[in-house]
Nucleic acid binder design. Structure first.
Lengths: 154, 154
DNA sequence: CAAGATTGACCGCTCAATCTTC
DNA sequence: GAAGATTGAGCGGTCAATCTTG
């Protein structure tokens, strides 16, 4: 666990599998949502995040953090979601340089329309095959990985 | 573990974490390779796969399967890698409708140039923080997920 | 100058259409 | 017609530049 110049055989094997997972899982999610609801997984994540928030509204910078995206990416997506009538933007009354994303009624309806198919996909791609103990292990592993990915030292 | 209509609270929480991982991990890998070596993670995967093969050559359809990509995606990437002189294509002598991807000497040099930085990134993003037991659990979890993602019933 | 946000150019991927070989 | 592969259009994302507010 000390020499970063190579990986052990076990680590290489595990790495290949992890790459397969993060290649295929997002592709499968996007494919389902695109096919059944004509929306990106990330677009859905944005709408879903707003739908769980009091007043269905949130500052863009906070929304970007919550959805693990850059402000630039979020802004582009907001533009597309706005064109479809699912969100709108408002100036934050408390700070003139902040903007707030707001879920429209149509947007809320869209989330509710997408959710069943998406949940089914998540369930059958991930959780159907996992026992409660395995789910807990998946959670632990993700927690450990996130600790490395979200630079704790800032 | 039976009703696909909703996820349990634990599953929802685990799902959020998993989404964070497969959002940030590929982004971090791409960022490192792009910054230090001006190559995509997927481009690197293609070159690395060829570098481990006898004769540094492989049929495109096999390479697509091995790298979890569509033939279309692979073909586009091959075009870009070819323009940079790292691979070339040849007609398969055994089957006139198959093509073979071949790693050039420059391509081999490119892999060797990229590898140290990439390995260091993988190590510090993933394995540095994991004990051997945790690595084994990560492997198990990935194996379980892949079983669902790679439709076994074809 | 930093934080919040937007914009445009460029690049990579997906999807459907197409071509060739079996 | 299916398998192997390529191509072009269109879309989503990144990066750097820009604008405004604090």
């Amino acid at each position: 666990m000390e020499d970063p110049r190579w990986l052990t055989d076990e680590q290489q094997e595990t790495w290949r599998k992890l790459v397969t997972v993060f290649t295929k899982l997002p592709a499968a999610l996007d494919a389902q949502l695109q096919r059944d609801s004509s929306i990106t997984h990330f677009g859905y994540v944005v709408l879903a995040a707003l739908s769980e928030t009091p007043g269905h509204r949130m500052r863009l910078s906070n929304l970007a953090t919550l959805t693990n995206s850059s402000l630039s990416r979020l802004s582009h997506v907001m533009t597309r979601l706005e064109e479809r009538g699912w969100v709108r933007r408002e100036r934050d009354p408390h700070s003139r340089r902040s903007n707030v994303a707001i879920l429209t009624p149509d947007g809320m309806a869209k989330v509710e329309e997408c959710a069943p198919g998406h949940v089914l996909a998540v369930w059958s791609l991930v959780f159907e095959g996992l026992s409660q103990a395995e789910t807990q292990r998946l959670d632990d592993v993700c927690t450990a990985l996130i600790a490395r990915l979200d630079p704790p030292g800032q």
